[in-house]
Design a binder for these strands. Sequence first.
DNA 1: CAAATAAATTTACGCGCGTAAATTTAAAAT
DNA 2: ATTTTAAATTTACGCGCGTAAATTTATTTG
Lengths: 343, 343
Amino acid sequence: MSQPKIRNMEDFASVSGISRPTLSKYFNDPASVRSSTRARIETALERFDFHPNIYAMNQNRRLTKNIGIVVPNLSDPFFAEMARNIENWVIKAGFRPVLLGSHGDPEQEIENLDNLRLIKPAGVLMAPLGRMSLASRIASFCEDVPTVLFDSNIDDIGEAFVGSNNVQSVCLIVDYLCRTGQPPAFFEMKTPANPNAFKRRNTYVRAMEELGHEPRLIQVDGEGWNLEEIGFREGTKVLSEGQLPTDTILCSNDRLAIGVLSAAYQLGFKVGIEGDCDLRVAGHDDHPFSRYTCPTLTTVSQDYEVIAEKSAKTLFELIESEKRAEKRTVTMLDGKLVMRGSA
Amino acid sequence: MSQPKIRNMEDFASVSGISRPTLSKYFNDPASVRSSTRARIETALERFDFHPNIYAMNQNRRLTKNIGIVVPNLSDPFFAEMARNIENWVIKAGFRPVLLGSHGDPEQEIENLDNLRLIKPAGVLMAPLGRMSLASRIASFCEDVPTVLFDSNIDDIGEAFVGSNNVQSVCLIVDYLCRTGQPPAFFEMKTPANPNAFKRRNTYVRAMEELGHEPRLIQVDGEGWNLEEIGFREGTKVLSEGQLPTDTILCSNDRLAIGVLSAAYQLGFKVGIEGDCDLRVAGHDDHPFSRYTCPTLTTVSQDYEVIAEKSAKTLFELIESEKRAEKRTVTMLDGKLVMRGSA
DNA sequence: CAAATAAATTTACGCGCGTAAATTTAAAAT
DNA sequence: ATTTTAAATTTACGCGCGTAAATTTATTTG
């Protein structure tokens, strides 16, 4: 069959016998045309396999069905997984995900938002870089586009925040560690880029004091996002100096813990909960790789799936309501203790 | 100063005193306007911070400065890192990277190409899914858009391929393992999705035969891309059955090896090269996490940076030449042995 | 069956920009 | 200063689609 080439909606209009404005309505919302018309269009669609040009749509529609997803770093499996989860929810809700990573760079983060503006997204789901983020510029973006933050909170920015309850989760694991062995020291970066890190530090200190133990902060040097490397390098230092007043290390996040675990292994420490072990290491986040470390990493889970679902649905409600949130909501999800081999 | 809001190039034309067609020329190529004009534009640009709408540009230009980057899975740190490297080269060459992940799904891979078509990319860098890829549809895309494949080759598709020389790299590590201990068994998936896996298997068999050893294939069940999980689950089976005729396992890739390493640890095997160890495990790829496993993973590096650079530059040359390659070139980069603790 | 209502069509313009042709202006060369 | 040449401007149209208003056609209601 010598089908004529369909180059645009006009072409498709002539071969399908439907006017272009009606087709436009259909592609925007199939339910908005009469069912008999819909059937005719869909029959023609099967024969000709036409897809409207999404960028031309974006350009002209006041509001599109695009939803931007911005994460600090796609190279981090945590964010990659989180993004994947969110993408699935976005698709399920009939929207179109547009995923952008910021490579740990605040300028790139803003550029991502600028690019998103051009496709007139119905909303944006964003995990900000944190402390380094250019907050005021993000804020001005959020004034124009309904935005839900996840993972890292920035005060008063966006319509809502969904993340984990660091107070609860850190208390949980500190409590667990204290019950099952020596009270933990807290291993973290001196100047962490992520606001969660500060909450975790403070909570650790408070939790230790409440349990009647002296908090011990191990604050190590290091810049950037190569956390395993930092955990390994600085963990090696700390462990080989042998000045640790405890045999238990709680790391501010799993990626640091993965590095520390590797350092401990190489230095000949036996890590774990058994009697013959000389070190316990715990993390925070339930990073995708933490179940494959040696030993497997005891940690507190951030429930990816729930954070993804909750933040996505919060945004969808906002979009459907067609108005902005009266009040910024903050949702903090409890972590669950994941008891594995390392502590 | 009460700057008028610049909404488009027309607005910018009036405030800058330059005609819109000249501005259009400038934004396409700053060198194409007289230097005095360029200076005037750039001065105005500083005052008004105008950026042309990239999507409107894409729509109208016959050829854009976009370069598509398509990888099988952004959740895999290997591809995430590779993509980051490529993005850097693309930016450095004055192009605009557009990164898309296929989530391991052949349909998504095609959809990514269809979406790329709309932004009229100058070229595409693509790591295909492999065996599952809908090859004929990729081929027809490649007829329209200059495309360089990397990582996984598909015969005769694209203008060029850049990847690692599996024959060389597998020979290298087989040789190393045979020299330093018992000849390795080869641990892999029964039905791998990636064509490299087949090359590696065949090379392993040949290399073993040439060295006068009997090849031993351990072909495990498993679907999908959660390779660590498969390595762990099937590794646990293999190791606990205790039927291994050798104490050395060469895994088809690092992600499987990470799973096997975890299984070995949990079963109480001591993995490593020292005399008191009862198992050696090696991988292939030098995955970002392989330097933090316990013990650290001996492997063969695929040189990310060189593959990224070479494939990018091959594409740039193609684009500049403004014609298609007379002959499809295949570049295979040698791997380097990375001797770490596990074998 | 006619009247009321709903949906589709026709017509026309807009989005932000590329680009070609004719014309004017500015710079370089004589 | 005059001619030659290069570059900028004006004008006009196109890309693929959204969308509003007026009109026609089809469906539903009484």
